[in-house]
Every structure is written in C-alpha cells, then in structure tokens.
C-alpha cells in the first residue's frame, strides 16, 4: 500500500525547502517593515528569529537537564 503523500520522503524534503524559504522571507520582510520597539534589543534585525531560535533551544535543553533529575517511570505512583 502506498504511503500517504504527506509522509513520503519526497514530500518531506519539499516541505523542509518550503519552510526554510518561508523563514528567510519572514526575516527579509523586516527590510521593508520597520519595527519600532520599546527597547533597543527588539529593534535589532531579525530579533524574533534569533530570539525565538535561541530561547527555544535553551528551553529544550533546560528541560532535558531538569528531566534527568525529575523523571520517573510512569508507574511511579501506582
């Protein structure tokens, strides 16, 4: 049986490409639209992009570290 078109590797490759394109566009749009921030940091170029990427990485890694301490088997309380 043939796989759903969405899960075919070919589609996924395509999706990655489209996604990277969209990412590029959103950053580049800032060239045309000026962002007036309240603080200086939020007016830096591509602030949303790098800040989002960075903080997400920190959160995921932080969670991973915390998880090493607080994770228990899911039958722990039974």
């Amino acid at each position: 049986m043939e796989k759903h078109w969405l899960v075919r590797p070919k589609t996924i490759r395509l999706l990655w490409i489209v996604m990277l394109g969209v990412l590029a566009v959103t950053v580049l749009l800032q060239l045309g639209i000026e962002i007036h921030g309240e603080f200086h940091i939020d007016e830096t170029f591509g602030f949303g992009a790098w800040y989002g990427l960075g903080t997400c990485a920190v959160m995921v890694i932080g969670a991973k570290i915390l998880g090493a301490v607080i994770k228990r088997k899911d039958t722990y309380y039974d």
């Binding site: 996604m19 969209v22 990412l23 959103t26 950053v27 749009l29 800032q30 639209i33 962002i35 939020d42 591509g46 602030f47 949303g48 992009a49 790098w50 800040y51 989002g52 990427l53 997400c56 990485a57 995921v60």
Partner: peptide, 15 residues
C-alpha cells in the same frame, strides 16, 4: 505580524 511570525517560525525550526 512580521515580528510574531519570525518568532514563531524560528521556534518551529528549533523544534
């Protein structure tokens, strides 16, 4: 809109 899209889409990338 642009700021929000940047933030969210790059979070997606990070994911």
């Amino acid at each position: 809109v642009v700021g929000q899209l940047q933030l969210l889409l790059f979070s997606g990338l990070a994911f």
